[in-house]
Design a protein around this nucleic acid. Structure first.
Length: 485
RNA sequence: GGUCGGUUGGCCGAGUGGUUAGGCGGCGGUCUGCAAAACCGUAUACAGCGGUUCGAAUCCGCUACCGACCUCCA
């Protein structure tokens, strides 16, 4: 029985879909105005894991993840500038060109990380009319007001009838004293009211017509609109990063409740953030490492390039609700660990069946499923897989054995958990044959001859010099192996 | 200031009222001409102070420190 932690109740709850076997899940996607970074990877991988596991449990899942491309405000209400528009001006490109470029980049990075694409990926810019209609509903129900061409959500009125702050555990009174007093907010009745539709300032590039003004939708309305459009007024899971909990998700709840008269979401799930040197990684802090930088090693904090699978494994080795601290050391540890896992699986392929079994693969299967059922506890799942690797070595070295049936099960379980659910894959080693490779083989053949003549001085010299060129030589019985490091 | 979360061995990171998490690194061993790789084994821990308990790192309280949200953010 799958249990997931629901931010609404602050506890683990049994997962029961509204209309089994169907499951609807909506996840907040990126605002496409810059390269995707480690934080995007964590969110995408967390919910990719959930998507894969739900499918493994034979649910029919519709996974919706949005692309925010309407360029919400960058600073505050009136002096703010559309962040996509700003980027467009800087690069002298059409806003939609920016959107396209970074959307493509995001897709590419997500594919590198082996995340499955969502079933629907709605763009905010493609749902302007729906967002206006959603805003109309809120207006009609009396929870919004128009002011100078903009439409604002009436938080106080809403809080009178419902509870604004239920998700993030806030009280309106606290918000009143804590909301920053920004300039140019006089069109709002209260500082904590938020925009559903915003009239564009003269310099604002991305804008659409509406009955209120030439403008653009507010920060939070796209998710309420698109989630309910594609998943229905009530759906199962809404996910996103913890930083979106307030105000974004809180406002979503308020909007959907105000428009539909009921809450839309059953389970709210939030992945925790990634920190660097104990500090939150964030674009605004200037310490975000993009995925492209990570994969190329081209960043001052990086000692080397890391493969997408090393990153994926690194992220999965921590529970999604814990903060994860980035460091070269930590990722390198994951890198090595992942190698060990795959080497274990390769060894498994070489094992020959025996008449009896000294190990029961079902035990492994059971423990792994239990770990996933417990709020997607991937670190524990992975620790069980390493136990399995230990058994594999034991059996491969003749200290145990497996029947053909158990061997098949073992292979199947590993493939299921490692490939299908954790979404890990062996990264193809570039096996390009080249003259250089032939030369290396030639040199190593000479070294073998030297070894046969017990001319170890020459043999070691060759090995050391190759090592200096980044080529690692491993002697194996009757020959050698080598690889680029 | 308000709200919430955290503090685990050299590093990352699970979990738990009494039993080895796991990975990386270290150390020892097997293998090797020597290495490397691989495999096996192994040590080091639960921020501090009180309390509850037969027993707490695990529950409760206090203290210290760290972080997140309260402005766009995954």
């Amino acid at each position: 029985m799958l249990k997931i932690y629901n931010t609404l109740s602050r506890r683990k709850e049994e997962f029961k879909p509204i209309k089994p076997p169907h499951v609807g899940m909506y996840v907040c996607g990126p605002t496409v105005y810059g390269d995707a970074h480690l934080g995007h990877a964590r969110a995408a991988i967390t919910f990719d894991l959930l998507y894969r596991y739900l499918k493994h449990l034979e649910y029919k899942v519709r996974y919706v993840r949005n692309i925010t491309d309407v360029g919400h405000l960058e600073n505050d209400a009136d002096s703010g500038e559309d962040k996509i528009g700003k980027r467009a001006r800087l690069e002298e490109l059409e806003p939609m060109e920016i959107v396209q470029r970074y959307t493509n980049g995001y897709h590419h990075n997500m594919e590198q990380l082996n995340t499955l694409p969502p079933d629907i990926e709605p763009h905010a810019s493609g749902h302007i009319i729906e967002q206006q209609l959603f805003t109309e509903k809120i207006l009609k129900h009396g929870y919004a007001y128009e002011s100078n061409g903009s439409v604002y959500f009436d938080v106080e009125k809403y809080n009178h009838d419902y509870h604004y702050g239920k998700l993030s555990g806030r009280k309106l009174e606290d918000l009143i004293s804590n909301t920053r007093n920004l300039e140019g907010q006089e069109e709002k009745r209260h500082p904590y009211d938020f925009a559903l539709w915003k009239k564009a300032t003269p310099g604002h590039i991305m804008k659409w017509p509406s009955r209120w003004s030439e403008g653009y939708p507010g920060w939070h309305i796209e998710c309420s609109t698109m989630s309910t459009k594609y998943l229905g007024d009530s759906f199962d899971i809404h996910g996103g990063g913890m930083d979106l909990l307030f105000p974004h998700h809180e406002c979503e709840i308020a909007q959907s409740t105000a428009a539909l008269g009921k809450e839309s979401v059953r389970y709210w799930m939030h992945n925790n953030l990634i920190s660097i040197n104990g500090q939150k990684m964030g674009k605004s802090l200037g310490n975000a490492i993009s995925l492209n930088e990570l994969f190329s090693g081209d960043h001052k904090l990086l000692e080397k390039a890391y493969s997408p699978m090393a990153i994926r494994f690194f992220i999965l080795q921590a529970h999604y609700r814990s903060t994860l601290n980035f460091s070269n050391r930590a990722i390198q540890a994951s890198e090595r660990g992942l190698e060990r896992l795959f080497e274990g699986m390769e060894t498994l392929e070489k094992i020959k069946a025996a008449a009896t079994s000294t190990y029961d693969p079902e035990e492994l299967n059971k423990k792994c499923l239990e770990a996933l059922d417990d709020d997607l506890n991937t670190p524990v799942l992975i620790s069980h897989l390493f136990e399995g690797v230990k058994q594999i070595h034991l059996i491969a070295s003749g200290k145990g054995n497996l029947t053909a049936e158990d061997l098949a099960k073992m292979k199947k379980f590993f493939a299921t958990f490692v490939y299908d659910i954790l979404g890990l894959k062996q990264e193809e080693k570039p096996a390009q044959e080249s003259v250089a490779d032939d030369l290396i083989r030639l040199i190593l053949d000479i070294r073998m001859e030297a070894k046969k003549k017990k001319d170890f001085e020459t043999a070691d010299k060759i090995r050391n010099m190759l090592s200096g060129l980044g080529i690692v030589v491993k002697d194996v019985p009757g020959g050698y192996e080598w690889e680029h490091k």
